[in-house]
Design a protein around this nucleic acid. Sequence first.
DNA 1: ACAGAATACGAGCGATTGCTCGCATTAGTC
DNA 2: GACTAATGCGAGCAATCGCTCGTATTCTGT
Lengths: 246, 246
Amino acid sequence: MTPRGPASAAGAQVGADPGARAAPRRQERGRRRAESILDAAEAAIDEIGYDGVTTNLIATRAGISPGSLYQYFANKQAIAEALATRYLRYLDRHGGSGDVAVASGAHGAAGRARGEILPAGLATRPTAEIIDWVVDPVIELNVAHPAAKALLAGSNVSPELAHATRALHAAICDPVDALIAAIAPQRAADACHLAANVSFQIFTGVLPGIVAAAPTERPAVIRELKAALCGYWETLRPAAGQPAAE
Amino acid sequence: MTPRGPASAAGAQVGADPGARAAPRRQERGRRRAESILDAAEAAIDEIGYDGVTTNLIATRAGISPGSLYQYFANKQAIAEALATRYLRYLDRHGGSGDVAVASGAHGAAGRARGEILPAGLATRPTAEIIDWVVDPVIELNVAHPAAKALLAGSNVSPELAHATRALHAAICDPVDALIAAIAPQRAADACHLAANVSFQIFTGVLPGIVAAAPTERPAVIRELKAALCGYWETLRPAAGQPAAE
DNA sequence: ACAGAATACGAGCGATTGCTCGCATTAGTC
DNA sequence: GACTAATGCGAGCAATCGCTCGTATTCTGT
């Protein structure tokens, strides 16, 4: 209301509530602010999409002013990058794909980590089991954080956003690439890359439907996705008796 | 250059070139203008995406002024709708899916046209052949008109755009639904709908990769997509000797 | 030749965007 | 209590958006 003097009403009571927090620790509080900004951005992106989301809206949702937001994130893209690394950590903590090629940093991860870091013997398991191992953690991530799919659907987004999420892409694609190379040893490396990319695109294509589905119907959608991937990967395996000629 | 007087240079020669066009017919020229606007919009959407595209940019690309654009299209969404119906006509002219449920108008098409309008005996052909019949025309459309995929990727777009492209979605999904119902008679209608939607999402997921691929590598990507769909649809068919219990 | 409709223009409107700036408040340290 | 740095504010800027408006030009019909 008053042009400048935001603490005229609320600020007068600050400090009168010391029992709420034992040791607020200023930088600790700042880190919490950044997290709450990411939470607000996550919810907003999930509802409106990255392009449609406004920094002012994120700030309002987080209960802060636009100026405060820019004390924690240099610009809108930085928020997306922070979300991407947050999801990367999520995949790192949980099992499945993501804990393979994440490792150190963003770039350079594509090309290393081909097979040896995968769980021993995973490639010899039934195809359905391999797919569970790859797919389940990423679905879990997207159900818990529905905005993740906005960062994973790399196509039809601005190039800056694509750059911000390259590491996230690689963390999912690289293990898939390695797995395909393991179960389809007759395929050339290029063909394995192609199959991994197509598999990833199939996954991200169905993802929004999975996240949007009602919890009771979600398993059915996931089952369809896995059936498709399973049917696809089965065709990648070398033919039993005769090598494929055509 | 001059604020008002656009014909100062070019307009002086109008009428001095009667040999170029026999009967220009004013309304004919207007229709051509509208088509050229759609052409410009198509190219722009392909490069920047629907949300990123500006009406002023479309006008500039079409070589007209912003005001002229709004004599042919009421607003930005109307351009998308006109593009969608243009693609609908494309699918209608060419074979394959699209010439089934298009018929009269937008709404109401979902639910009718279940099976009987499909080519006789198509469902009894090999799965790969069925998929060719469904997939090839739509890929052809998207290769010829790369902006179509922006209208097909229904998710992560604004609701207005989704509404403008519902008919296009239905024209592709409905025949798929009917085909799945034909090759998987043991599945309930709901399950067929689900499989059709998942198949559609798989298709639109891989589509950008197909369109973006170099022409020499495009067949390989298409082959992977078809392998995935084929492997998926094979699992939909009733088991040979025993009905599926689990 | 002339009226009226269709076509065309482009400056600029109102709204919105990502982001800045100057300043107020608070926490931590002495 | 005084000083500093971290944190916080919110009005508002510069740019951009979709779109309008008043006006100029061209075509068609008569």
